[in-house]
Design a protein around this nucleic acid. Sequence first.
RNA 1: GGAAAGGUGGCUGAGUGGUCGAAAGCGCCGGACUCGAAAUCCGGUGUACGGUUCUCCGUACCGUGGGUUCGAAUCCCACCCUUUCCGCCA
Length: 428
Amino acid sequence: MLDIQLLRNDLEGVAGRLAARPFHLDGMEFQVLEQERKLVQTRTQELQSARNSLAKRIGQAKGKGEDVAALMSEAGEANAELQSVEAKLLQIQAKLQDFLLLLPNLPHASVPPGRSPEDNAEVRRIGEPRRFDFQVRDHVDVGEALGMFDFATATKISGARFSLMTGQLARLHRALAQFMLEVHTREHGYTEVYAPYLVNAASMRGTGQLPKFEEDLFAVPRGEEGKLYLIPTAEVPVTNIVRDEIVPLELLPLKFVCHTPCFRSEAGSYGKDTRGMIRQHQFDKVELVQMIQPEKSYDCLEQLTGHAETILQRLGLPYRVVVLCAGDMGFAAAKTYDIEVWLPGQNAYREISSCSNFEAFQARRMQARFRNEKGKPELLHTLNGSALAVGRTLVAILENYQNADGSVSVPAALQPHMDGLERIARAS
RNA sequence: GGAAAGGUGGCUGAGUGGUCGAAAGCGCCGGACUCGAAAUCCGGUGUACGGUUCUCCGUACCGUGGGUUCGAAUCCCACCCUUUCCGCCA
């Protein structure tokens, strides 16, 4: 959510910066709502003030045993207008809130303009893609040849966009998550978190999934009106740790790492990445989340991105880092780096991590604050990034570490997590 | 799922429907005392929004949402949550 003060003071400027996404800000709608709000709110408060002092006088008069009939009728009359004007105010404020909740974040000044992924700018490229002296296979062929990937059975059990792994492949998947958690907790100073996979609407609103992106979520009905949502990323439960909290300054930065499954309906991506486990309804991810003072958040974004890159470096996977252009960024982000891993089977770099600074956008929705040097509550900045998407990392390993005989080498960094296993081969 | 108790400011904890945004204590901040500290004493100490604009003023907020009333932390209804006991359960 954007600061409503900013809209009041510089509507043109905000509209200009949002146009880069591109997003059309309806300035007229806002101004009309604001004008009305001001009028109605002022009147409401006047009437409330009058009611309060009148009620007070009635109380005092009664205390002295005086006649209060005249005062009572006066109060009764004023109440009629108050009631209607209060209802009107609630209605306008709700409209204003809806308006604000649907505005995306402002892109940071360092974000390149542009509308499509082609406008993203490569920041750095690390590692040399390996040369193969045999015909490379994609992860599906590699995994199925090993007899450890079974998409057909996954489809039988659940439907499209689910996967089933068995044996050493399932173990590799587990080892990856384990390895990532250990690097981040031991070397990068993150606190491990176990968090709920089902969250309420307030949490989804806090991080920005709601109200605009409900169709991307899986919902579980519960009770009469209520429902819970399956998390699309650990970002949601973990960031909401600080919702409605005022964090003491000395606790900052808060750094959390959390491994969860993620659930996404992938509505609107029909026909996209239908093969293999690139785009699934359910996938595992290790997520980094930080909460920090505003003046430090961009340094933190660089660090956090570096933490994600560490995993790829340790695994010996070639990758590049791109800064997303304004048009390719998510709704809540002010700046995002995508990390793309090299996939020989696709002969392309594919997203494996997305690291973003949300500035105060989420914090304002969540009322997530810290107590600054002056002792005043101030909105936090929130950041997060995948480090990494476990399923896609597994894909990258299958493709980059495949051997001519159909086996897959286990990256050295993972071997300690797999009882020293060096190669995954078909069981004979 | 059943029964009971309870949700008040950073914490503990009062609060006959009427100067209650809320006693008191603790904590915290400032000051006095002190060479310094402790103890003691004095003063201050919630959040959000709006108006004004840097000084104030107003409004709202006592789990959430409704209701009764001139007036609700206080009464009524619904819901949520917590604790304890029982049942069930990994």
